[in-house]
Nucleic acid binder design. Sequence first.
DNA 1: GCCATGACGTTCC
DNA 2: GGGAACGCCATGG
Length: 129
Amino acid sequence: MNPFYHRIYKVVRHIPKGRVATYGLVARLAGRPGAARTVGWALSALPDDSDVPWWRVLNAAGRISLSGADHNSVLQRALLLREGVKFAPGGAVNLATFGWPAEAYDSAPAAHTRAASSRRSRRLKGLRT
DNA sequence: GCCATGACGTTCC
DNA sequence: GGGAACGCCATGG
């Protein structure tokens, strides 16, 4: 397994209970800024018996990136609620409150839900046209 | 080795 | 505030 993955997992394991981190932040802490997609890839490859709290990793919008239809998304939401993480109306977590490390979000509000838009819509649009 | 895809992010319009 | 576009890194075909 690549060192990046190991770093990613290690970082995720370091996320305290009841706190959440973003893919981009994990990627940065893992030593690969901008490799947020890779973080998601690494987490998707996690075995069920893994000790990595993947559910504590959310996107920059503080939302669960998984499809609502995905079983894991439900599991993730449940696990976070169990740890005391509260979801604001709309299914978003207040990163300023539950974000880890806190200092990372102090300067970076990560305010907008722009990330949710993403480039997927482009592809979808292409198909529709 | 090149092309396409994906649990993402940031900037521009 | 919402939508579209581009970039980033790693994997699979």
